[in-house]
Nucleic acid binder design. Structure first.
Lengths: 248, 248
DNA sequence: CGCAATATTGACCATCATCAATTGGCGTGG
DNA sequence: CCACGCCAATTGATGATGGTCAATATTGCG
């Protein structure tokens, strides 16, 4: 069921890029002119797969996606949770073989943009290039932060850190009013993302609830004590590079 | 003791970029024309620090460097081992605040290239831009692979995987003849890179030696049974993206 | 109402961390 | 040349974090 995108879909990417870099009027127009083909996916299905050689990038419009990889024996590592506005396979623009899969965590609507169109737009508009490149660098910074978590943080710290990260990322796109947001991941998926077992995720979550730091009911997370939660995991938001305006 | 670079230093970057992307004659010349300022560092010293706002990038000429980050309580995560030809802070080109430090693992000679010079060269030469961007994407792919290790691989697999990775990366620049290469990391540093304690690294290493898979004497690693070692950790080199020529 | 997926609990256990010595290699000053 | 000192490697003993297995609730949903 692919079809050409309607107006609001086209703005999703623009909003994201403007949160990353300042764009000129022509650059904004060039983003809106990018050709989009929209497709829908069921929860649990793969959008692109490890070792694919895609010729387009996938812009998440609605729903959440995961970047993940399976080991030959079935162990799984989830490497990122992607939210609307993300482009989980942006690197395919310059890395021709994918080294991970992207799957739909929930039902997903995604817009596909041909590599060629992005290349042409970025060649004509250096500001766009800057924004796209910067996005891939921010993704990499998040990977590094997750490495710290899995290598050196306790289970409590890891889970708290992820909750803080999702809070800030979703707030940045207006999807976390009053410290509440949707996080449709099962405890099993959380474990695969954090390097923990499902059982242990469950116990830590109960503990965070008992401490009244958070509430997590059926995919709805509420951060009750923001400062205490951030203290618990020594959260430093620098790595999200959310303040492109002031950080120079 | 900084000084302007001599001829062979200038070629180091060219070699790396040519291993990443095909360059035209003008692009090659543009790389050689980049202004370099060379500085030397003692082992253990920091080259750039977390939260710095650098205006230049650091090209490793000689020696090994680590990308690392300290938690407030002293725990450390090493996020990458960098070898000659690497640019450990390339992302500073578009991310203005560093979110990790880069330290000299051994005595290091490094060449600094002003951001402005790189920006001008990449604006004039799209092929160069492609190569630099691609390099940052390959770095990110390595981060993802390390995440898999720390999240889902056993200590044996993690160590074996790192040994394989360094082997392939160093072979690519001619620094690992006959399966032998220099890896001047202490067991403590290996632990901080892999999310393990020093003691446990020691024990696993002894075990790999007992199995006659490797030899590791005073920073000199020799891979004795390459296939067996790769089997042990299900090593798949795709993520290193070393074959830019054939992979299209 | 009943299946299927998730969450939760309990019991037990393994990997790996921690702590504390001890050993070995190697550079330095006498 | 040798003793000292330092750093890294190694070993042993003990323990904790978090994994595994299996059973039992819950909840969503058709």
């Amino acid at each position: 069921m692919s079809h050409v995108s309607t107006a609001p879909d086209g703005r999703r990417l623009l909003l994201r890029l403007e949160s990353i870099a300042d764009l000129t009027a022509e650059e904004r127009q060039a983003v809106l002119d990018l050709p989009l083909v929209v497709r829908s996916y069921d929860a649990g299905s793969d959008i692109v797969r490890d070792h694919d050689r895609p010729h387009e990038c996938c812009l998440l419009l609605e729903g959440y996606a995961i970047r993940h990889k399976l080991l030959p024996d079935g162990r799984r590592q989830i490497m990122a949770f992607h939210i609307p506005g993300d482009i989980p396979d942006l690197e395919s623009l310059h890395l021709h073989i994918l080294d991970n899969s992207v799957g739909a965590l929930t039902p997903v609507r995604a817009a596909f943009i041909p590599h060629r169109a992005i290349r042409e737009a970025t060649q004509r508009h250096p500001g766009l290039l800057h924004a796209f490149w910067r996005q891939t660098l921010i993704d990499a910074a998040v990977f590094r932060e997750w490495m710290i978590g899995m290598g050196r943080r306790t289970a409590h710290e890891r889970i708290a850190h992820l909750i803080c990260e999702m809070l800030l990322r979703l707030e940045a796109v207006g999807l976390a009013p009053e410290g509440t947001y949707l996080f449709p991941a099962t405890q099993n998926e959380l474990g695969d993302a954090l390097g923990l077992s499902t059982v242990h995720v469950n116990r830590v979550l109960q503990d965070l609830r008992k401490q009244e730091l958070i509430t997590w009911v059926r995919s709805v997370v509420t951060v009750l004590k923001r400062d205490a939660l951030m203290d618990l995991c020594a959260f430093d938001p620098t790595y999200l590079h959310q303040d492109h305006g002031t950080e120079r």
